[in-house]
C-alpha cells in the first residue's frame, strides 16, 4: 500500500468504486433521496468535519455528522411542503474525480477511497461553488459496496458561509 499513489488494484475494482461514486453524485443531483440513503450501510455516517485536522466527529463540533436517522429526517424536512427556504428552484451539479483506492482490508472487505469533488449549486438567481475531498470507507455487502463512512473535507471549511447548506454535498 502506498498513500502517495493509491493501491494498484484490479481494473474491475477501480471501475466498480468509481461507478459507485458517480452514482452517488447522480442521485444527489437528481434528488433521489431514498437511493442516496440506501447507498449507506445501516450504521453508515455522513461526516463533514468543522476543521481539516479533525480525527473524529464524536464529541466535537462538525458541519455535518449524520447517521441514518438524521439523514432520514433531513430528507423529510427538505421534501416537506412548508420548507419555504427549499421551495425556490434549487439545482446542483457534482463532478467527482481523482478516485484513488488507498487501502484494502482483505479480512473485513473494507476499502478506503479518496476522491475530489466540485459542486455548483443554483438557487435564487445565484450560483455557489463548493469543492473538496471525499474519503469513503466502503464495505462489500451482498456483493455490492456500501458506504460505511463518508468524510467530506470542504476546501473552505472555515467559511464564512453565505446562508447554510441544506442537503449533502
Amino acid at each position: 500500500m502506498s498513500n502517495r499513489t493509491g493501491l494498484v488494484t484490479s481494473a474491475d475494482m477501480q471501475r466498480e468504486v468509481e461507478q459507485l461514486l458517480y452514482h452517488q453524485a447522480e442521485v444527489l443531483d437528481e434528488r433521489r433521496w431514498e437511493e442516496w440513503l440506501n447507498l449507506f450501510t445501516e450504521d453508515g455516517v455522513y461526516w463533514m468535519p468543522a476543521s481539516a485536522d479533525q480525527q473524529t466527529g464524536e464529541g466535537q463540533p462538525n458541519i455535518f455528522y449524520e447517521d441514518h436517522y438524521l439523514m432520514d429526517m433531513r430528507i423529510r424536512r427538505v421534501e416537506h411542503p412548508y420548507a419555504h427556504s427549499q421551495a425556490a428552484g434549487h439545482r446542483t451539479s457534482h463532478v467527482v474525480s481523482n478516485v484513488m483506492i488507498k487501502n484494502e482490508d482483505q479480512a473485513s472487505h473494507e476499502l478506503v477511497v479518496t476522491s475530489r469533488f466540485h459542486m455548483v449549486e443554483y438557487r435564487l438567481d445565484d450560483l455557489r461553488h463548493f469543492g473538496g475531498k471525499y474519503t469513503h470507507t466502503l464495505i462489500k455487502l451482498d456483493d455490492t459496496y456500501k458506504i460505511k463512512l463518508q468524510r467530506v473535507d470542504l476546501t473552505n471549511v472555515e467559511g464564512p458561509f453565505d446562508f447554510v447548506m441544506q442537503v449533502w454535498l
Binding site: 464529541g59 462538525n62 455535518f64 455528522y65 419555504h84 427556504s85 446562508f163 447554510v164 447548506m165
Partner: peptide, 26 residues
C-alpha cells in the same frame, strides 16, 4: 453534549433551523 447538540442542530452551517430564518431575513 447538550450544548453541542444545540450548536449542531441550530447553529451549524448545515442547520435545518436557521436555514429558514436566513431565507426570511433575505
Amino acid at each position: 453534549e447538550r450544548s453541542l447538540a444545540y450548536y449542531y442542530h441550530v447553529n451549524s452551517p448545515s442547520t435545518m433551523v436557521n436555514a429558514d430564518d436566513l431565507n426570511n431575513f433575505r
